[in-house]
């Protein structure tokens, strides 16, 4: 098992909180985490794995930090 910190932002926090520490099977992908959280992959416009863009098929490692954002913008 691995431990991954998932940080949620904007309306992704509704019903999910700001942060979840998830215990996952080794080999779990980012997409599978989205599914566990009931977040549509189309809605997850910005997915950061340890601060860098994370491809959805990427397998997570122990202590990874996943930051999930719906579409946001400003300036």
């Amino acid at each position: 098992m691995i431990k991954v910190e998932v940080r949620l932002f904007a309306y992704f926090r509704e019903g999910r909180g700001k942060k979840q520490v998830m215990e996952l099977e080794e080999g779990t992908t980012i997409l599978e985490v989205l599914e566990k959280l009931s977040i549509d992959k189309e809605e997850a416009k910005i997915v950061l794995l340890n601060g860098m863009d994370g491809p959805l098929d990427r397998e997570l490692k122990d202590d990874d930090v996943l930051s999930l954002f719906p579409p946001v913008g400003g300036g």
């Binding site: 940080r7 932002f9 930051s67 946001v72």
Partner: peptide, 8 residues
Amino acid sequence: VLVNIINE
């Protein structure tokens, strides 16, 4: 709304 994404 940018604060968190820019920081992360």
